[in-house]
Design a protein around this nucleic acid. Sequence first.
RNA 1: GCCGAAGUGGCGGAACUGGCAGACGCGCCGGACUCAAAAUCCGGUGCCCGCAAGGGCGUGCGGGUUCGAUCCCCGCCUUCGGCACCA
Length: 811
Amino acid sequence: MSERDRTYDPQAVEARWQRVWTDARAWEVPDPDEAARAERPKSYVLEQLPYPSGKLHMGHMLVYTIGDVVTHFRRRNGALVLHPMGFDAFGLPAENAAFREGGHPREITERYIETIRASMQRIGWWIDWSRELSTHDPGYYRWQQWQFLRFLERGLAYRKGAHAKWCPNDQTVVANEQVLPDGSCERCGAQVESRLMEQWFFRITDYAQALLDDLETVDWPESIKARQRNWIGRSEGAEILFRIEEWEEDVAVFTTRPDTLHGATFFVLAPEHELVSRVDAPEVQEYVRRTATKRTAERAAAGEKTGVPTGLNAVNPANGERIPIWVADYVLMDYGTGAIMAVPAHDTRDFEFARAFDLRVRQVVRPLEGDVDGDEPYVQHTEGEVLVNSGDLDGLPAPEGGRRIVERLEREGRGRFTINFRLRDWGFSRQRYWGCPIPVVHCERCGIVPVPDEELPVVLPDVEDYKPKGQPPLAQAEEWVNVPCPACGGPGQRETETMDTFVDSSWYFLRYCDAQNEEAPFDRGLVDYWNPVDLYIGGVDHATMHMIYARFWVKVLNDLGLVGFREPFASFFSNGWVTAGKTKISKRAGASVAPDALVERHGADAVRLAILFLGPADQNMEWTEETAESMARFVRRLWRVVGEVAERAPQGGPAGGVLARKAHATIAKATDDIGRRFAFNTAISAVMELVNELSREPTDPDARFAAETAVSLIQPYAPHAAEELWERLGHERLWEQPWPIADPALLERDVLEVVVQVNGKLRDRLQVAPGTPEDELVALARASERVRAHLDGGEPRKTIVVPGKLVNFVV
RNA sequence: GCCGAAGUGGCGGAACUGGCAGACGCGCCGGACUCAAAAUCCGGUGCCCGCAAGGGCGUGCGGGUUCGAUCCCCGCCUUCGGCACCA
């Protein structure tokens, strides 16, 4: 044994095998022809792609190692596994990194891409780099612009004036999803304001119901589905028209409780409601001004209710009653119609408002027990409650009464059943530089004119100053902006806003399937072959935005006939957060625990093992360096034990002894843990147990088989060391070896341990042969000294026997 | 308020279908090797009583079902996460 073989040098071993794999082009997955498709199943394993706005951190270490282990496992189980990688290069994170560090966003971004790719390759993740893409590449976003134009043709992309969340610091519109609960900007922490401006939207609300229904068809954790359902927020109810008496005009409200219509004692408009701007009263306009400057946080803080009366009255269509119209900011413009009928007896918020301004309260649904009459609002729906104070409907069960009310209004043309969603259309334009240009030209004569397909891509130009200053940075690129209108040839200006980065990530998984295509976004045959993604892996933080947008995008493409499936991600594994101390590791913190430094110290194999041994991969975990040390120790131990076996253990197949049985049990456990349970930590434990037993019997006739099994099973986690040890055991190309299969015959133990209990408490253990008859087991158990002591000489009242497992006496 | 997840040794965690609670690892204790230390190896390690044999207790709390409950049911407590004047 040479000195090199004796001591484990991860840096040398890992470099060696990475060279071998690269030379063999082992990580590439060419698109299979028909014959190959018939021969092997496909599996598309995908992790959410990284933002190149910082270096790799331990969160990445976790996601990509999970994906890598599954990739190895499925490959060696015979599947053709697509496992690509790319970079989500555009968008605020990359741009902010450029501001932070100086330089052009493109340079910074590309530098980070280099760095991250080098780290990934050093860690040895089994990635098909021939399919790499970056969203800032014109070869990529050209086809995004092309798809946008298809959406535009269908009316699924449109422009409208809307109240937008505006970040005064980033000088851009931010998505609702990017505003934190306290009203601050997710990116920079500044307080977000409300502004009325023209913006681009995708009509995602057209797909609200489909997005909800199709959740039934995907295999995702229930918690993630629940978040999406929550986000889509479907409510069944009715739209009802009230008449503004003084103006002889109708105004619609949405309600989920039409049964309480007779209890409406006042009416409230959101301050942004169109009608409010037409109210002359100065105190109303003053109130509207005040709420507009109010920060989201203050308005949302459900403290004191504020509002002003308009002096106008609305007529309740159910009973002709006149009720006062108020303006109050507890009514939101972007939900329902921006106007409500207030029923203080049956809604807590209306009740609070009525209390604050001394408005009438009238109960119209009688609870089964107790009474309301002003003290507490009664809101809970209970089975069997009936209407009161509702004219001829009195005594009807509330739900039925509600139905009758809407049916009546429907006949009069003053109401209808409807469904309202919390989900709003996706505002995707950003007043920022670093994003995909929106390929349209504004023409005074023709309006918004799409750039013809053959002129794509509209390439993002360089500008002097790419920092936002109230108007989009692209407006400075005058030569680029001023172009003839594609329709009439007259003077036109390009759109200067860019697309939200979530557009980029809504279809990247399709592009991987045909990344070099210059004729189309992708070939439908290839995309339909690989998709849907069989296992998508990523963080919960993308459970709503990204994963809803991507689902929407695919549904639209399906409706356009561009893809043959309606859901992008057939199953989803949500990985936990990695924390160091108490803070989530991200680019903001944690250079000290950067994977690069850890790999330098312990080797890639040890760090890969450590991140998965830390705990269940779908739960949050706290990183500890001790774990990396302990995994490095384990690899060294494996190295030494396998070396000893290679040198001293007898040649020949397994003899079927204890060690061979243990090896087969380990195969069964590791296979189930990786393949079905995604319990990577316990799979590693199982291999450790095997190695522990092997280290006690390195010259056993089964030692060679046990060593081979251990090496083979640890390969997805520690591919470099495993490959080297496999070679040491006299074999080649472990990465191409089929995953081992447990022999059911050897899973049967030759001696079973049967537990003997008295009253459910463990009193003795028996060693018996498998298949020992029940009565013999009972006899053996009763013969036990320790059992007899607890039986107190009496007869057991009852005896329970679980064959092969236990005997329980009840006295 | 609504929705979701989770409470097990000193620590991370295991127990997969109701059947040996604490696998595996960290830490700690003891020993071997060493001039010494590191590394490595061997042994021990839930808590309490006991010299020991052995016994008792033990999976957030209180009940229940069961021969038997970390696991199922009911009622609480705590922690974490998401949504939230959503009409």
